[in-house]
Computed example of a mutant assay.
Amino acid sequence: MKIMAPAFIIGLAGLAVYAATTFGGDEPAPDPSPSKVSSSEQRQAKPGDQQQESLSSLIDSSGPGDISSKLDALLSKKIPASYGMIDQISQRFKGSTDAEEKLRLARFYNSAYFNTEDKQLREKISTTLTELIRSETDPKVGRSLALSHSRLLFDGNTLENLSTSYKKKFLSFDDYYGELAHAFPGAPPEIRTSMIKELAEGHNRYASDIVADYMSGGNSGDLTAAEIGALKGFLKTNEPIFSGAPASFSMFEAIRVEKWLGAMAEFEKNGPAAKPNYQAVFDKIQMADTDPRFAIAFLISGRGRELATDKTYTAEILKARSKAYDFIDKNSSSQSLQSVRTMLDDIKP
């Protein structure tokens, strides 16, 4: 009888559809509600029971190293995370001696967190990760735990875990400041200010790339004038550069430059509701000591192409193109520069 219950429910649902389509909705369709199913059948059909049974079976049947793919498959079925799931995963984690398995299990906590809307369950996941970070001794596993937690929504454990992980050398200098840069936008104002101050004092280039990317997306609205000033100073002292040969052009570095310039436009706008001040970008590009490749990077970006259609900046676009072309012409043997020339040719204000 237990095996037949799901099929019975599906059968009623199918009959309801059949009645509605065959009789045009005039004939009352059978009601497939749980009240028409026996209590034992209802228990068998509950999603929570199916989830617990699936997880228990998964835990019991998984050997070292192969559990994470099965857990991912479980989550991909949109079965929400549960308290029992987290308890069983934690038990598995603590009892495992397989470092690779523990790495994958550590990442699973993050997936489970975003697979539920239950605030208390999210708190449990955060607390569980915090306890595991405190007790872990393996640097690689510790790093995985730290990153799994740092990418959760900001909470009371975020800064403690970052600090603990950095002190235990789970996180490198770049890791620590990079995660701080990822985390500060979600922090409450009274904490955010001190985080920005720490970022500015850290002078970490990787963190500056993350901040530039975030700010270039127009996200300065919630920041105070003092916070904007601190972030602006931080980015100015970590201006991106084109490495390698003087006549080379890297698309990866061009993206970093374009994001940095976009952030500067955001910092210089006149008020939270105003548009980014791109005149500040063009002024920067035209400075004598500014690398001409800044002009190329900005013009060939989506942002630059969009501004090329704005008559407000026609004169500035033309001057930036002129600086870019002059540099390319002087380095005619550079294949990387010649490859972007055709991209510049398409930008016509």
Rank of each mutant, 00 (worst) to 15 (best):
243 S>F: 12
21 T>M: 06
214 Y>G: 04
213 D>K: 14
227 E>N: 11
116 T>C: 00
256 R>Q: 10
23 F>H: 15
186 G>A: 10
331 N>P: 05
170 F>L: 08
20 A>G: 01
275 K>M: 12
98 D>P: 04
109 Y>G: 02
268 E>F: 00
232 K>Y: 11
164 T>H: 13
27 E>F: 06
321 R>G: 02
168 K>Q: 15
294 F>L: 00
50 Q>K: 12
12 L>W: 03
219 N>A: 05
152 L>W: 00
162 L>R: 07
112 A>Y: 00
125 I>D: 03
300 I>W: 13
341 R>Q: 12
166 Y>K: 13
115 N>W: 00
6 P>W: 07
177 Y>D: 07
43 R>S: 09
44 Q>C: 14
300 I>K: 14
342 T>Q: 08
251 M>Q: 13
184 F>H: 06
166 Y>G: 04
108 F>M: 04
118 D>A: 08
275 K>E: 13
86 I>W: 01
66 D>L: 09
53 E>K: 14
7 A>N: 04
119 K>W: 00
213 D>Y: 07
166 Y>N: 09
84 G>K: 04
263 A>K: 02
109 Y>I: 02
142 G>D: 09
227 E>Q: 14
233 G>Y: 03
251 M>E: 07
220 S>T: 13
2 K>C: 01
42 Q>K: 14
124 K>R: 13
318 L>W: 08
121 L>I: 04
293 R>A: 09
253 E>M: 11
170 F>C: 07
343 M>T: 10
47 P>Q: 07
162 L>I: 11
325 Y>K: 03
130 T>A: 09
199 L>Y: 02
221 G>I: 06
194 S>R: 10
8 F>A: 15
104 R>N: 07
152 L>V: 00
339 S>V: 10
7 A>I: 06
161 N>I: 07
229 G>F: 00
232 K>N: 06
38 S>Y: 03
235 L>Y: 02
336 S>Q: 02
257 V>W: 10
119 K>L: 02
299 L>S: 06
147 L>H: 09
307 L>S: 08
95 G>M: 10
232 K>M: 11
74 L>K: 09
82 S>H: 02
185 P>L: 08
73 A>N: 06
13 A>E: 10
328 I>W: 13
28 P>D: 07
67 I>S: 05
326 D>K: 14
50 Q>L: 12
301 S>E: 01
105 L>V: 08
231 L>A: 00
26 D>Y: 10
13 A>P: 00
297 A>L: 15
37 V>F: 10
73 A>Q: 03
161 N>R: 10
47 P>E: 03
48 G>V: 10
52 Q>T: 06
55 L>F: 12
323 K>S: 10
142 G>F: 12
292 P>C: 11
331 N>R: 15
311 K>H: 07
340 V>L: 12
133 I>W: 04
101 E>L: 06
112 A>S: 03
52 Q>D: 10
336 S>N: 01
38 S>T: 15
118 D>S: 10
57 S>E: 15
17 V>N: 12
185 P>T: 08
